[in-house]
Every structure is written in C-alpha cells, then in structure tokens.
C-alpha cells in the first residue's frame, strides 16, 4: 500500500527513489515516529496553554497579542513544513516522508484556525461589525482571512475516504495549498510595522519550495518532449 502511494506521486528520476535501505518499517512509522512527530508539532500549542496557566514565562503584558503572534507564526511555519515534504522526499530519496504531509498540513490548519479564532473571540470579543469592517476594509486582514478560508476544504478532504472519493480532483483541489501559503506570507509581510526581515525569510523559503516544483515541472516536460 505504501508503495502505491509513492508510485503515484513520485517521479522516476528522483535520486534514490528505488532505495529502501534505511527505511523504517510501517510499524515503526505508525507507532514510533508518527506519535513523536505529532507531539513535537503540538509542543508550541502545549507551551502556550502552559504559559496561559502560569507555567514558565507567562504570556506577557499583552497576552492576546502574544497568542495572536505565536499562533500565526506557527500556522505559517507548518504551512511551509507541509510544502517542504514533497521536495525533501524526492531530494533525499525517502518516499516514506510523504506519510507526514497530512499531519503537518492539519497542524498548519489548526494553528491558523486558532490564530483566526483568537482574533475573533479574544481580540475582537466577537464584535461582528468591527470584524466585518476589518475583513472588508483592511487588506492585510482580508488576505489572512482568505488564506484561512482556503485551508478549510483542504482540512475537510484530508481523510483517506475523501481522497478516494475525489480521485484525480483531490490533487487539483489540494493545489489550493499554494495560494494559501502565498497569502499567509503576504498577510505576515503586510502586518509588520517596519522591519520586514522575518517575513522576508518566510517568503524566501516559500519561493524556494515553489521554485523547486516549477523547476521540476519544467524539466519533466522538456525530458518527455
């Protein structure tokens, strides 16, 4: 079963594609690596919860802002991590890495969703008029809102059942992750008051991840031509 997933998404000329030396067994992945990765991905959230209840650093003089910033940053980081899976899998020749893509994507959605929920509930106190005005009139909020909304269908259809039902259309649908990531980077960039170093770093990583896909797409085409 794992072989069939790989065959569908991997290209034949990826280096090391056929090598299975050093590959963990499905059992190791399922009961060892996956739970560990899950825990690692949940750590930022657990840390925020801990801080909210007074363990270690508290959330600082402006806790709502801290929550907003930290959740948003992790949403963006996991979005980029999700997009890094395929290039890493191909470049390192480790097809089993593909099995972590869904988990990373769902964590990206979780953090981005909590980021949005924090804005709605704690920051705006569910003041609908202000929220609508913000989303309609403030481009950086519009962009962030669209990014989160774009991720909703991806999260819903992330299950094996939906993947089977949608067939080829699943791949097409899940290309929405590209605009979502671009919008998320843009949202961060626009929000910054002055120093754009950090958004620039995220944008550069995103450019590399998308650039790799374009390069691969083009070089595949020229090879088959």
């Amino acid at each position: 079963m794992k072989a069939s997933i790989c065959a569908k998404t991997s290209s034949a000329f990826a280096p090391g594609y056929y090598s299975v030396i050093g590959m963990p067994t499905q059992r190791q992945i399922r009961y060892g690596i996956k739970p560990l990765v899950f825990l690692l991905c949940a750590l930022p959230l657990l840390s925020l919860i801990g801080r909210a209840f007074g363990f270690g650093d508290d959330l600082g003089p402006n806790p709502v802002e801290t929550l907003q910033d930290v959740l948003g940053e992790w949403g963006l980081r996991f979005l980029l991590a999700t997009l890094a899976v395929t290039p890493l899998r191909l470049l390192l020749g480790k097809p089993w890495l593909g099995q972590f893509r869904r988990m990373l994507g769902l964590f990206a959605f979780t953090y981005a969703g909590l980021h949005f929920a924090n804005y709605l509930v704690l920051d705006q106190s569910l003041d609908l008029a202000t929220i609508v005005e913000d989303i309609v009139e403030r481009p950086f909020i519009t962009v962030g809102f669209v990014a989160v909304v774009t991720m909703v269908p991806l999260a819903i259809t992330s299950t094996a059942g939906w993947r089977r039902r949608l067939g080829k259309r699943w791949n097409a649908l899940h290309r929405l992750v590209y605009p979502a990531a671009i919008l998320a980077c843009w949202h961060f960039w626009w929000q910054v008051k002055k120093d754009i170093t950090e958004p620039l770093i995220y944008a550069a990583i995103l450019a590399a991840l998308l650039g790799y896909r374009i390069w691969r797409h083009v070089s595949q085409k020229t090879q088959s031509a």
Binding site: P61, N62, V64, E65, D123, T130, E133, D134, R138, P139, F140, W190, Q191
Partner: peptide, 10 residues
C-alpha cells in the same frame, strides 16, 4: 492598516 477606534489596555 488598522482601526484606531478601540484600544487594548495593557
């Protein structure tokens, strides 16, 4: 880029 109508008291 943002509203000045309200403020968050630190």
């Amino acid at each position: 880029r943002w509203s000045q109508a309200k403020e968050r008291a630190i």
